[in-house]
Amino acid sequence: MTAAVSAPVDHPWGRFALRRFGRLLVSVWVLVTAAFGMIHLIPGDPVRGALGPTASQELVEARRAALGLDQPLWQQYLDYLRGLFTGDLGVSMNSGMPVADILGDRLPATVELAVLAFALAVLVSVPLGLAFAVLTRGGRRRPLELGFTSTSVVLAAIPEFLLAVALVWIFSVNLGWVPVAGRDGPSSYVLPVVALALAPAAILARIVRVETLTVLRADYIRTARAKRLPSRTVYFRHALPNALTAAITLGGLLLGALVAGTVLVENVFAWPGLGSTIVSSILAKDYPVVQGVVLVYGVGVLVVNLVVDVALALLDPRSTIREG
């Protein structure tokens, strides 16, 4: 064990990764505590709220006891933490199903959506940003540049749910190419994935273009041209790797935002994922489920950020220093 830990510590990157992982644990603890506190900060009695004003006092008391809400606060907190470590996230107030089962049921659909949308955004934006950088370098083709920047800023500014509704109206209602909603076969993925991917793709393409423009002005690009390398070697081998560092940082942040975007998009498309679950359980005041979904979303975003930071430290050792 000691040997396994001390080996990466010798390397600055290993030290950074360990320290960064420690920070993740602290963040997760804060998240867990906030999720726990949520149920107690909500005005009124959550059990009474869930069961409705007509429920008998005995029933409310019995449910409170079942949920452990009659225990002292610290006892509840410890029970909650113990539950997390054993995979017990409580039971749904409405269906009586364990929250862990509900999450396990819904998580894959959301992950699929987020991963596909992110992959689409990257696959579209990197070549697009590079191409527009090459076409508009050194003040060339001003009208094209104006067209690109204005189109991308508009696409990035449209909220996902509005875009989703517009896509449904055009491609499902009027053209009938793809299903309106639901998760049934490959064609049902098209609209939710596009609705989620469009804004991040537009932002990422802008960043890739600007970064590539900066790199194309660098002296080592002049050196590469002095070697009379073919243009594609100059762009793909010399410019692109240097332009992608900033794009990776931003890509990580966008992936986090994209996870949040699934909440809205899933509800428009009645997608059976965590996003539609959290909204329906909030409306039903099913707090254990809400807590569970909040935890999953939170941990998801934290882990994505960790992965991006650690990957970036590998690519660009300077970022480990900035951590201080």
Partner: peptide, 19 residues
Amino acid sequence: RRPLQMVFQDPYSSLNPRM
């Protein structure tokens, strides 16, 4: 082939940092 080659002023920026 270029029979004429040039060495530039700044050795810090004239080499690709990723190669």
